[in-house]
Every structure is written in structure tokens, then in C-alpha cells.
Design a binder for these strands. Structure first.
Lengths: 192, 192, 192, 192
DNA sequence: CATGAATGAGAGTTCATTCAT
DNA sequence: CATGAATGAACTCTCATTCAT
């Protein structure tokens, strides 16, 4: 167990509060004062850790995206077959979104609103490279449809975000069997 | 050609300005005063047409959603086969999203952020009933996978929103062939 | 008697409050909220009349400088002899500084601190042109020393500001005879 | 060469930083944190040397004023004739203002704004006593006009401050001949 | 002596909303 | 119906000062 410095504890509390509150109300409807209160620090303290509100949310986004992709690719190895590799990655992504709903919700909102700076968004995209590489291999081996990565992503990965958002809105409850069904739909949509 | 009353012209200008500005900056970063300026009325006038800012955006959402679904189901008839019906609806939806990007973007943002009241969101969902009915028929006829409508929507319809958002962010350009490829992916993901 | 619009009354109250408070505490030590309170308006109202705090003080400076120079040159005509012209202008300036102490103090502070934008400062300088022209005439006629206008100003005009500041600090009381003595000193310092 | 204690070095760095920064931006626009950074100490350290920000600037003023007057009267002796004595003092003052512009600018700003406490200001004035004594002698000997010391100061000494401020604002460049011309103007304005 | 971290108080500014006209 | 003018409340952010180390 790593011992966190006091500083690091405060920073994490801030990141956590930001995610929670932005999830509930959106970026612009979340005042710095609320974030401070939830993290149990003075508003002024936030400015010791981040340049300003925009910088705060940018950094929270990039760090969360990094944690997400690290998690996603952890069990994956380039030795795996395309199908096996895709399944391993997909299941880890699903796992992350179900177990770390808060983080997943936050990332979804970042992807769909103009609240993150272009630079940070770009950085977030780069972390997905291994998946893009796998797809290329799949196309070469004629296992995956020869279509744009954006289409592959839209159909095989992004739907998970939609399902999580639905679940958080309370209109849909994701159960065990849904995961398998979703995986099938995902794979069916992109396999040749 | 329907002649619009002066009142109706102003109201439409307000709705239009709201969509444009919320698309560009998000709901909370869009001041009433800007909406008023763009619609060429006084801020005070907005309160003659809408109760307050939240009411304005709720109404804009519901009306846009209604226009969207009306468009989506216009060429569809219940006589059609399941596959044909799905294709007709899907293509109209795609058509709407490409031709009325502004409206589509606005709906996407509403779906993915906490900016719309729950009641209005619910109302928006109801308009999709014909599609849900079609899917039920498809399941009965063992043409469509016997899985939750939310999964069917997540995989066959929602990806279009993602692609439009990507296009608006400037990271992806939707071309003619993408539509057909997207339709194939959509259908592959839900067909039995 | 000119009837002022409500708007103009408020604007003048703001200008007045600004001068009073900046005189007492300096620009940066004078919060917008205090200016608003003294002018009996909401802080937000200030932003209907001025772009921001800097714009407010710039405009107050330029307008006050303009009033000052208008007053200074009112009795002067280019027909006058150099000596007579200088005396007329000098006495009007002295008159302004004594009768409109508040405005004079404000101008003095603006001249000696970096609180006014360069552009506005430049504009203020331009209003003094008639005096500069008079000096040129005086140099041509060998009545006034052939030295830089800055020196002429420093010795014949600026000392008045110093005396006013001293008086306001309570260390010196300007009496009738001082004016005449000061005029003599001023004229002695620049006449050939 | 006097060896300065570590303490004294730090104190001087603080005084120096204060002068530089207040010159550039004014007292209230200069944060303690910036002064600390420029002096290469922690903000907290300032409070070991000075009671608070106001005390800091007061002390800097008094010490600078003292240094100024010490310099001014260094070559002067009471044996000198009035005219010679005045010239000696005047030239030293001019010398100080030109060679130690930073200090001179700081003193000028202190004289013209409400940033220094009344007590400290009074103390600053006292240091000028030798000049006042000289003038008294000059009046007795009927060499200098029998007018208030404030007038004498306003016309013979203060204009130098104005010229330095103009130079620092970049609108005027003081050259060698200007000094002699200025001295003439100064003497002409007060001599009988 | 010296400090980095922390903060309460208050700065300038914006904005949804109201109201006299 | 429509408005321009006005504002209270709330926003982001800064800063003089303190205090545990």
C-alpha cells in the first residue's frame, strides 16, 4: 500500500469532487466553491494545485482517460489473435465502465460537450492507439471490416457509454447477460 | 406556404438562436442576453415566450426531438417488412443528422448532459415508440436479436450521434460511403 | 439650465464618486463596490456605463482633463501679447486648481502614477496645445527662454499641482497673496 | 567595505524589490508574493522584517528619503554663501535623481499618492531642515524672495521630480544641457 | 530564522430576471 | 406586446496574512 502525501490526498479529493459534481450538474453549473467544499478545502487552495477552473477540468479529464486506457489494455498482449485481443480489450472496457461508473460518466460527458480544451482532448485520443493498431491488424487479416476507425469505434465501443448514461439516468439497469449480448452486438457490427 | 404570425417568427428566432449558441458553448455558458441579441429581441421579451431559461431549453429540446422523430418516421409504414422498415427509418435518421446538423448536435448534447429536466427528457423518449414497435415485431419474427431495446438503440441508432459529434469537432468527415457502411454495421449488430 | 437625463445624472454621480474615492485612497485601493455605493447604484450598473474599472478611470481622466483645459484657455485669445497670454492662462489654471480642488487633485494623481492607460494619457496631453503654441511664439519673440516645453511646464505650471497636494495634505494653506507670489516665481523662471 | 550580515542582505533585497515593483505597478497593484519572489525569500519571511505591507512601504519610504537627503547635503557646508550653497544642494539633488532614478521615482510616487502613512510622510519632511535653514538665511540676506518655503520648494526643487517622471514615462529625455537650464529656471524663480 | 501551504475576505465582473415605460 | 435599464446574487480568482514545521 502506497502512502500518499498530504498534498496528494488533497489533490485526489479535488479530482474526485470535480468528477462527482460535474457528473451531477455539468461543468458550468459547478462552482469552484462547491468543489472546494466537497473536497474540504478553501476555494483558494484549488489554485495551488491548478491554474484555474479550466485547467482543473482539463487535468481531471486527461488523468481519468489515462486511468481508463491503462485499465483497458492491461490484460491485452499483441500476441493475441485479433478476435481474442478485441474481446479482452472490450471486456476490460466494459468492466471499467461498470465498476468505475463515476469515471466513465465523466469521460462520456467530456466527449460530448465543448467543456474540454482541444489540446487535452487530443491527448486523450492518443491513449487509444493500441486499439487502433489491433484494428489495423484485423483489417490486414481480413477479420475486421475495412472501414474507418471512427466507424469501428462508434459501433463497437461507444455504445457502452450510451448504456452507462442510460443506467445512470435510471431508465435502464445493466445486468450480467446484457454484457454478453452487448459484446456480441459489438463484434457483429465490425467483424467481416 | 404557411404564413407565420409576427409572434411565431420571434419565437422561432429564439429557438434557433438557442440551438446555435448552446451548440457552440453549452447551456450554462450561453447567456440569455446573447440569445436575445442573436434573435434580435430584448432579453425581457424572452420572458413573454418562456417562463425562464430552463423552460426555454426544455421546450426547445422537446420541439426539436419531435421534429426529429416526425422526420424519422415519415417514409415508414407499418406494412413494410421489418428489415425494410428498419432501413427506411435508419436512413431517414441518418438523413436528418446530416442535413440538419445543428438540430442533431443539439439533441446529442441534451442526451449526454444534465441540462434538460427529467420530465422533458421522458417526453422526448416517447416519440420513438414506432421504432420500439418495429423492433418488437422483428423479435417476434425472429429477425432481430431478442435483446433489450436499449441495447438495440445503443448499437443501431446512437452511433450516428457519435459520428456527427466527431464531424463537428472536425476530427472526422462523413462521406457518402460511410453512410452505407454505417448502416451495414448497424444492421449487423442487431439482426439475428 | 440644461436638463440632464436620468442616465446622465447617474453617469455624473459615478464620475464624481470615482474622483472622490481615488483621491482619498488611490485607484487600486478603491473597489468598484465603494464607487457604486457612493453613486447610489448597483455595482453591476457601472458596467452599463463603462467597460470595466480601467475604462472608467481612463474616461474620468480624459473628461476631467478636457474640462480643465477648456477652463484654462477660456479667457485666452491668440491676439494677446505673450506675457499677457501667459498670465491669463496661468491665472485660469490657478483658479481651476483652487476652485475645483477635487478635480485638480485627481489629475495630479493621474499624472504621477501608472494608473492611466498610455492612450488616454496621450489624449490628455494634446489638449494643452494652445499653451505650447503660445510658448513657441514667446521663444520666437525672445520673451521666453529657448528651452524645452517640458522644462517650461515643469517650472511654470506643475508647481501649482504640488502646492494643491500640500494643501490637501493639510501642511500648507494657499492664501490670496500666495497666488501672486507663485505667478511671479513662475514667470521669473521662464521669462528671458 | 562594510560586511553585511545575511539578515541585512535579505532586508536590502526586500527594500529593493519593493521599490522596483511599486515603481512599475503602484503600491496596491504589487502583491507581497511578488516582492518575496523578487527578493528570493518566502512571503512569510517578510513578516519577520516588517509588521505588514503598509509598514514595509512606510519604512522603505523613510529610509529612501533619508538616503536622498544625506546625499543632497553631503557637499554642502553652512559656511557657503547662500547662492553657492543653493547651487551645491540643487546639483546634488539633480545628481541623485538622475543617477538613482529608481529611488527618485519611488519618492515621487510616494509624494503624490495616498500610499504612505501621514507619520512617515512627516518624518520624511524633517530631513529637509538644512535647506529650510539656508532659505531663511537667504531671506535674511535679501538674496531670496521672502515667500513661503512651500513656494520655494514647489518652484526650485519639485520640478525635478516632474522631469524624472516624464523621462521614465518615455516622453522626455533629460540631457546634459537640460540640467543647467533647469538650474537657471530654479534659481530665477526664487532669487530676489 | 525561515518557510511552503493554506485560507478568509474581498476583489472585479457577469447574468438571469424584473419592472417602469 | 415589447423594451432598455437596472440589479442582487453569484461567479472566478487574488492576496495579505498566518502557522505548523
Amino acid at each position: 500500500m502506497i502512502k500518499l502525501s498530504k498534498s496528494e490526498i488533497k489533490r485526489r479529493a479535488l479530482v474526485d469532487a470535480t468528477i462527482t459534481l460535474v457528473n451531477n450538474s455539468g461543468f458550468h453549473a459547478t462552482p469552484i466553491s462547491k468543489i472546494a467544499k466537497m473536497a474540504d478545502v478553501s476555494p483558494a487552495t484549488i489554485y495551488l494545485y491548478f491554474e484555474n477552473k479550466q485547467d482543473l477540468v482539463n487535468k481531471v479529464f486527461v488523468e481519468t482517460k489515462q486511468a481508463f486506457t491503462t485499465y483497458a489494455f492491461e490484460s491485452y498482449s499483441e500476441n493475441m489473435s485479433v478476435e481474442q485481443g478485441f474481446e479482452v480489450i472490450w471486456k476490460r472496457i466494459a468492466d471499467f465502465k461498470i465498476k468505475q461508473v463515476k469515471n466513465a460518466m465523466f469521460l462520456a460527458q467530456c466527449d460530448n460537450t465543448p467543456m474540454i480544451d482541444e489540446d487535452s482532448r487530443q491527448e486523450g485520443v492518443r491513449y487509444l492507439q493500441p486499439l487502433v493498431d489491433l484494428w489495423q491488424r484485423g483489417k490486414d487479416e481480413q477479420i475486421i471490416k475495412p472501414i474507418s476507425d471512427y466507424l469501428l469505434y462508434a459501433y463497437s465501443i461507444n455504445p457502452l457509454s450510451f448504456l452507462i448514461v442510460m443506467q445512470e439516468q435510471g431508465t435502464f439497469k445493466i445486468k450480467e447477460n446484457h454484457i454478453e449480448e452487448a459484446y456480441q452486438a459489438a463484434w457483429d457490427s465490425i467483424k467481416l
